[in-house]
Simulated scan of single mutants.
Amino acid sequence: MKKSSILGLVVIAIAIGVVISLYGSASTYGSFADARETSSELHVVGKLNLQKELHYEPVKDANYFSFYIIDEKGEECKVEFSGAKPQDFERSEQVVMVGKMEGNKFHASHITLKCPSKYTNDKVEFTEFKAKQANI
C-alpha cells in the first residue's frame, strides 16, 4: 500500500473514534425509572411538588438544596442539588435536571428552570444553575 493510503485510513479511523466518543457522552432525556437503569447522567424533566418540603438552610449549608419532582411519567422522586436554591424556584412551570440516581435519590449536577414570563403570557424564560464542584 502507498503511504498516502495508510495515512488516509489512519485519519478515517481517528475520525470514527471521535464521532463514537462524542455520541457516547451525549446526554439523553428520560424519567427517574430510566435514571435507575443507567449509570450515566440523564436529563429528567418534571414539575415541582409544592405539597412536599423544599429543604434549604443557607446558614447550615448553603450548597445543599433538596426538593421533590414529579417526572413526565408521574413518578415522584427526591432530588438533591449541590448548590444554592435558585431564585423563584417555586414559580417554575417545569424543571429540567441533569444528573444520576444514587440509591433512591436523584443527584442533580445542573438545573434549568422554565418560568412564566413576567411581562407577557406567550413568552417563557429559561434560567440555568450548575452545582458546586467539590474540592478534592
Rank of each mutant, 00 (worst) to 15 (best):
V10E: 02
V10P: 02
V10Q: 06
V10L: 15
V10M: 10
V10R: 03
V10N: 01
V10A: 14
V11E: 02
V11K: 05
V11R: 07
V11C: 13
V11T: 10
I12M: 08
I12K: 05
I12N: 01
I12L: 15
I12G: 02
I12W: 01
A13H: 07
A13S: 15
A13I: 13
A13N: 05
A13T: 11
A13W: 04
I14V: 15
I14A: 15
I14S: 11
I14C: 14
I14K: 12
A15Q: 07
A15W: 05
A15D: 02
I16H: 01
I16C: 04
I16E: 00
I16Y: 01
I16F: 01
G17R: 04
G17Y: 05
G17F: 07
G17Q: 05
V18I: 15
V18A: 05
V18D: 00
V18E: 00
V18Q: 01
V18L: 08
V18R: 02
V18S: 02
V19C: 01
V19H: 02
V19I: 14
V19Q: 01
V19F: 02
V19A: 02
I20Q: 05
I20W: 03
I20P: 03
I20F: 05
I20C: 03
I20L: 13
I20N: 02
S21I: 01
S21Y: 07
S21E: 05
S21F: 06
L22S: 04
L22C: 06
L22G: 07
L22W: 01
L22H: 07
L22N: 08
Y23S: 11
Y23G: 14
Y23A: 09
Y23W: 09
G24N: 15
G24C: 04
G24V: 04
G24W: 04
G24Y: 07
G24R: 14
S25P: 04
S25Q: 14
S25V: 11
S25G: 14
S25L: 12
S25I: 13
A26G: 03
A26C: 02
A26E: 10
A26H: 10
A26L: 12
S27E: 07
S27H: 09
S27P: 02
S27N: 12
S27T: 09
S27R: 11
T28K: 15
T28E: 14
Y29L: 09
Y29V: 10
Y29C: 02
Y29H: 11
Y29W: 08
Y29N: 12
G30N: 12
G30H: 11
G30F: 13
S31N: 07
S31C: 05
S31E: 04
S31W: 01
F32G: 00
F32L: 03
F32Y: 06
A33Y: 08
A33V: 12
A33G: 11
A33H: 05
D34T: 14
D34K: 14
D34A: 15
D34V: 10
D34Y: 09
A35F: 08
A35K: 07
A35W: 06
R36N: 13
R36H: 04
R36I: 01
R36S: 09
R36L: 08
E37V: 03
E37Q: 14
E37L: 14
E37C: 03
E37K: 15
T38C: 06
T38P: 05
T38S: 15
T38N: 13
S39N: 08
S40A: 09
S40K: 14
S40N: 12
S40Y: 06
E41L: 10
E41W: 03
E41F: 07
